[in-house]
Structure formats: structure tokens, C-alpha cells
Write a protein that binds this DNA or RNA. Structure first.
Lengths: 341, 341
DNA sequence: TTGAAAGCGCTACCAC
DNA sequence: GTGGTAGCGCTTTCAA
């Protein structure tokens, strides 16, 4: 075990209080520069680092912030969107004095441990990157835990929100299809309880169609999840049920990539026979055949910002709610076809 | 703030000591069953959870284990191999009483903070998933920090190791190329300081060629990194320098996928003109065009095992060194071509 | 089988 | 500017 504050006090001939003061930025200015220098040199020599457990104990802090992510990412490697969320949060937390703890949201209700973790304040704050049910949300809300929610926004709730402009993202996708002149169109839909953002994209998408006076009897919904498997299966099912629409808006890149695979296997051509649009702009979208047109949302940056807001809020606990909407953009590659015919 | 041990003591009319005893599995048997029941009911009612900071303080533990990963994964989403490592470690740590802390290994030497973190035991143990230089390794070794190393093995060093059979992995790749009858062959090579495992794969690969009496003048090395970009660039460079070998063994799937992109862009056919073999078997390998033949190593399981070994070792601190070699296997898909001509 | 009390290493308040 | 000291919530002897 390395040195403790008492040893530093002894070796400098100063008191514990002075060492403590010198070492914290808020109080360092109260110490005479000369004393400060002496302390620093001894601290360095002894390799002294204050012990978090003791600090947390007296500050009544846990030093931990949580990141709530859905259960369906047992392997973060399986999902680029959540991979970006995790990376973003990690990178911001790494620069703070906090530790990061993952809370895997179960399919049903939170378990007793998780609720304790939150309600008993074994955690100083929580970044929410996915939420199963409103009920669970309210349970947490009542705990008064500082919360920052990523990619969801509910004006009725007193929290911080960092989200992308889902409506506009959907609109851009729809507009792109309209610009390309496609005449039968489908959008995939996943469980709205887990993906409230997809509802908003759908609204935006429909608005683009309406603006273009698109005949809505040529529009349809395809049930699908967010995995490649589900994209793959969705195409197979459509095919077995009488064929594909001319253009499909998948609600994430991963499922779109799965769809691309099924399309290729079935001997259908993309984008000649069917146009495919993804969402998220994960890196691998540019390496598929055909490369994937998509809507980009700045997930990494959003997650980073969420974590920064949270840690700052915990420190200052100022009252005002922060709401940040981030822009999205269309990324045109090959999978939606070229110019309007 | 939730209840503390003193409150539980008061509400049960017992002493703090008894509560403490009743609540730890090692000492719970010293408490009368009846007392135990009383305590449990009050604990439950009050939602009491012991506070880690206090426990850590008195136990002289940090409750933290580290995961050392290379700097070149600023976004974990960018690298499936390390994504799997992180997932595996996370999943094992989640079941333990420890917290996980990431140590991003810098390109050069560890910074002072990181060294402190380790040497001053601000951490109870470390999973090493990538290591820059032997020098840094030895710095840590001297700290006597419990260490488990993933995918590297050095019999000279008193640590725990969990690694895949790199030699055999390379051998399988080489043998596959031999079975397919390819006559000019190349292997990519990245910085051996960061990737000692690749050296071993290369050895195994060469052994397969030697066994098949392959003329080594038809064998070459291609410098490349582990990103798609580097795979992409490697192909472009080869092309501009007089053409591609008939078959290339990339040392990871990500770079192989980048190569596939360059190959397609240049109008070369895979596998007809050039065969491409990856390594790792990341999920997306089955979604590329052509789908990627590769060597699978059980990274997630290895990482999980590494974390379990570490936490168990910290608890028991038994002396014996654990060394586990995991099997690898060939996954044949499209990118290496069909049957032997 | 239970209780009392001494810390673990640090911060924060109050004196000087 | 600096020092003294009372805790933070828990574990762990030692006694009873």
C-alpha cells in the first residue's frame, strides 16, 4: 500500500489539514506557494495518491455514475449504435473523477438489486441510453437521481436530455426516396416501447411523403427488430409474402446490412430492384456491397455530452434542465440508387 | 441517503457488530438463526445496502479491477476484437463485487497517473488485453499487482494467461491455402510490439506451407495495421506495386473487410483473382460480399474467463499460476474460393 | 452468541 | 496560512 496523507504530513512537518488543502484544487490557493512546493515534492517522491474510498466516505458520494443500456446487447460488439454510446460515455467519464457502472436493463422489470442501486443512492447519477417501460422510468424519477437521457425527450419530465432530431432524420430519408421517385415504399418498425425515437422518425418520413403527395396506399410497414438477423428475416418474409416494395427504410444500419445479405442471396438486385436506406451511419456501412445510404446521427458526441452534463450536474447540482437536440444528416452511398429516373 | 448499519442496529435493538456479522456470508453462521431472521426483515424493510466506500476503506481494497486496452480503440465500436474483450470482461465483472476501470494504454509510455493507479494499488487487479512494450510490462510486474493477460503467453513471467492457440490458427489458415492450391501467397504483418500473437500465427502459417513443400520465394509479407483503412490501403499499394498475390492472409477480419472494399473498387474479383482470409470471426464477416473465410478464436469467452480468474485470485490470492490455451477453428465461407482446382 | 471500541484515510469545520 | 479534531460507515479484534 502506498503512502497516506498522514505520512505526507509527517515527512513535510506539516499538518494533515494543510496537505489535504494543498491537494484539492478548490482549496489549493489557501496554501502558501512555498508550502505548496514542499508538499508537491514530497507527494511526488512518495508516489502519494489520495484514496478514493476515504474521500467518497466522507463526501457521501459513491463516485459512480451508471449507464443504463438495454438487455439486448449482451455483447456490445453486436451493436454499433450502443457501442458508440458506450464509447462516448466512457471517454467523458475517463476525464472525470467518476467510475462508470453498467446497468443492463432487463426485458421485464428492474430487479431488486438494480432498484436498490439507484434508490439507495449507491450511485451519483445515471445516463439512460435505452428505456424499457414508462413504469420503470417513473420509479427512477421518484428517486431524484440525477438523470440524463440519450435520444429520447419528454417535456413532462424534469431531466436532462440529449437527443438527435429524429423527426428530421425520418424526413430526410423520406425526402430522398421521393427525390428518387420510388413508387412503393416501406419502413421497418420495432417495439416502440424500446425505441420511441423510431416513432418520430416515422412521422418525419411520412411528412416527406405527404409533402410529395405520395399515395399512401403504396406505403407499408414491415415489422423488424434492430439486429442483422431481423433485417435478414424481414426480407425473406416479404419475399415469401408476395414481393418487395421498391424502397425500404430500415431503422438502423445493422438490420439494413442483414437485409442486404438476404437480398443478395435471393438474387434480387440492390439498388436496381430494391433501394435500402439505413440509419445511424456506422462505419461498416461504407464497406458493404452495395455501400449503405443512411442517416447519420452524432451518437458518440451525444453520449459524450450526456456524460459531461451528468458529471457537471452532480458537482454543481444547479437546477435548470438541459435539453439539447443534435442535427442529423443524409449520407448518400450506393444502396438507394442513383439519380432520379 | 438510505439507511446505514447503525440504524439497522437501532431498529433491531442489536449491536452494529451483530448486524455486520449477520450480513457477511463468512460470518453469518455465527449469528443465531432467529436473530438472523429479524435482521433480514429489517434490512429488507429499510432497503439497506452496505456502502462500498466504507467497506473498501476498512478492507484496504479499492474494489476496482482494471482492463488495459490499447490506445488505438478510441471507439470500441471500431474494433470487434476489443469489443468482444470488453464485453467478456464486463459480463464477468458484473457478477462480481468489483467495479471495472479502463486503462487506455498510450502509444508511448504509461503516464504518471496510470503508473500510480497501478503501483499505489488504487486497483486490486488488472486484465491486460494489449500491451505496448516489454518495458511497461515489467514496470507493472514489479508492482506485484495481480495480473491476467489475454492472448499472450510468456512462461518467464509469473502471471495468469488466457490465450488462444495462435500457432494453430496460423497453421489452419496456411493449410487452407495449401489445400486450395494457391501458388503465390502473402500474409499481413502489424507492429509485433503490440501484436505478439501475430508472430505466432505467422509461424504456424509457415509451418503449413513448409509441410506442403511450398516454394518460399512465392511467399511474401505485406505491412498492414488492424483497421479497415489499413487493409484498404494495403491492397491499393500492392496493386500499384505490381499486383496482388493469389491469396492473402489478413491478420484480422476488420482489415480483411477493408481489403475487400479496395479489391471491389479496383475491379478485381475475390475469390476468383485473389483469395482473402481474415482472423477473429467477427459477426459482420458473414455479411460482406463475398462473405469472409476466417479463423475463429473464442474471444468473448476468453475475456470472461480472464476476469473470473482475476477476481477469484484477488479473493483467494492462492499462489499457483493459471495458464489456459483455447482452441481456434477454421470458418470457411466465400472469400477464399471453393474446391481445389 | 453478542457488544464495545479502535481504527481505515480523508474532509471540513473551527481555532489560532 | 496553518493546525486540531470530529466524524463518514464499516470491519475486526477483544471481552463479556
Amino acid at each position: 500500500m502506498s503512502a497516506n496523507i498522514k505520512e505526507i504530513a509527517e515527512k513535510t512537518g506539516l499538518s494533515i489539514s494543510t496537505i489535504s488543502r494543498a491537494l484539492r484544487s478548490q482549496t489549493a490557493h489557501l496554501v502558501k506557494p512555498e508550502t505548496q512546493r514542499l508538499i508537491q515534492s514530497v507527494v511526488k517522491k512518495e508516489g502519494y495518491v489520495p484514496q478514493r474510498a476515504a474521500i467518497n466516505l466522507v463526501k457521501k458520494r459513491t463516485g459512480i455514475v451508471g449507464l443504463a443500456i438495454p438487455y439486448f446487447i449482451p455483447h456490445i460488439a453486436n451493436n454499433d449504435y450502443f457501442g458508440m454510446v458506450i464509447s462516448g460515455v466512457m471517454s467523458a467519464i475517463a476525464e472525470s473523477e467518476f467510475e462508470l457502472k453498467f446497468i443492463i436493463l432487463p426485458e421485464g422489470d428492474l430487479n431488486q438489486n438494480q432498484i436498490h442501486l439507484i434508490e439507495s443512492k449507491q450511485m451519483d447519477g445515471l445516463v439512460v441510453a435505452g428505456w424499457p417501460t414508462i413504469n420503470q422510468f417513473e420509479e427512477i424519477l421518484e428517486s431524484k437521481m440525477p438523470l440524463v437521457v440519450i435520444n429520447d425527450f419528454d417535456a413532462n419530465v424534469p431531466n436532462h436530455f440529449v437527443y438527435a432530431d429524429h423527426f428530421h432524420g425520418g424526413y430526410l430519408a423520406g425526402k430522398h426516396f421521393m427525390d428518387l421517385g420510388y413508387e412503393t415504399i416501406a419502413v421497418t418498425s420495432a417495439d416502440p416501447e424500446w425505441f420511441p425515437d423510431m416513432e418520430q422518425r416515422l412521422e418525419g418520413f411520412k411528412k416527406a411523403l405527404t409533402e410529395a403527395h405520395f399515395p399512401m396506399q403504396n406505403f407499408s410497414m414491415i415489422p423488424a427488430g434492430v439486429s442483422e438477423e431481423s433485417g435478414y428475416e424481414a426480407i425473406k418474409q416479404q419475399l415469401s409474402q408476395g414481393g418487395l416494395p421498391r424502397a425500404i427504410f430500415f431503422q438502423n444500419d445493422i438490420s439494413a446490412i442483414g437485409a442486404l445479405k438476404a437480398i443478395r442471396e435471393k438474387g434480387v438486385s440492390c439498388p436496381e430492384d430494391v433501394a435500402v436506406m439505413g440509419y445511424d451511419n456506422i462505419r461498416l456501412g461504407s464497406y458493404t456491397t452495395p455501400s449503405l445510404s443512411t442517416i447519420e446521427q452524432p451518437v458518440f458526441e451525444m453520449a459524450q455530452e450526456a456524460a459531461k452534463i451528468l458529471t457537471k450536474f452532480i458537482d454543481s447540482s444547479e437546477a435548470s434542465v438541459i435539453v439539447k437536440k443534435h442535427p442529423v444528416k443524409l449520407v448518400v452511398r450506393e444502396s438507394c440508387g442513383g439519380k432520379r429516373v
